[in-house]
């Protein structure tokens, strides 16, 4: 197969909620090791697209392929086991447990207890939460909880990572650190990043996909996207498309 290096592909992916079509017949494809940015105005269907990929929603129609395998009928935990990790828009972490326990639970999924302990310490160091190991995650600041979730996702060593607004609630410095971390992660895994922060997108983007009304509007490099009249109209609310 010539598609050997395609890591993720959707064919005609559609998600309807009653009369609302949140994701409309999306044909999306990306390669191994790619870092793809997903942008679009609020309600464009980006988060719903992510939820369809991880089967938090069951797509109304269409198929999802991961590394050539049809994963449309897999359920959430099976998709996770195949190597897709996701950081959700509202941080999904274990608020009542310590930072260490959060990361450990992710590490233990793939390793024996002793190895998991070691990996946990490494990851906590890597995301810079060494000072808060024993603290309950629910008591951390929003930005720090984002880090915890990133740590949880990284620990699973996924082949494809979906990041839904990873810099929300972070300070300027923290955004900088996230940018570095994402570049670093990209050496081992493909990434799809949903973000509204254009500075951040500019800093990391290779190829950008623009969503609008549940469909792919354009797909191009960041420079071309920025000068694209259609995209400007969509963001500024002109009645285009």
């Amino acid at each position: 197969m010539a598609e050997n290096d395609v890591i993720l592909e959707t064919r005609g992916l559609t998600m309807r909620f009653g009369g609302v079509v949140a994701v409309n017949n999306v044909d999306f494809s990306m390669k191994e090791g790619e870092l793809r940015c997903l942008i679009g105005p609020n309600g464009a269907g980006k988060s719903t697209f992510f939820k369809c990929l991880t089967r938090q929603y069951k797509p109304s129609a269409g198929q999802v392929f991961f590394r050539g395998a049809d994963i449309t009928s897999d359920i959430t935990f099976q998709i996770a086991r195949r190597g897709i990790g996701i950081k959700t828009q509202v941080p999904s972490v274990f608020d009542g447990l310590s930072v260490h326990e959060n990361i450990w639970l992710s590490a233990r999924r793939h390793h024996k207890t002793r190895a998991a302990n070691k990996i946990t310490d490494q990851i906590i160091e890597r995301v810079g939460l060494g000072h808060a190991t024993k603290q309950l995650v629910g008591r951390l600041a929003h930005g720090e909880r984002q880090w915890v979730e990133l740590g949880i996702v990284l620990t699973g060593e996924p082949k494809l990572i979906l990041l839904d607004e990873p810099t929300a609630g972070m300070t300027g410095d923290e955004v900088g650190r996230t940018t570095e971390l994402i570049r670093e992660i990209n050496r081992q895994a493909a990434l799809i990043v949903v973000e509204h922060d254009m500075q951040f997108i500019k800093a990391i983007a290779q190829k950008v996909t623009v969503f609008h009304h549940g469909q792919i509007l354009v797909e191009d490099t960041m420079i071309n996207i920025l000068s694209n009249q259609q995209v400007r109209d969509v963001y500024l609310g002109k009645h285009a498309v």
Binding site: G85, S92, V93, L97, L105, S106, R109, I152, G156
Partner: peptide, 13 residues
């Protein structure tokens, strides 16, 4: 962990 956050536990596999 499942009690704390079922979705995250499932997303971990």
């Amino acid at each position: 962990a499942v009690k704390e956050n079922e979705l995250r536990a499932e997303l971990l596999g």
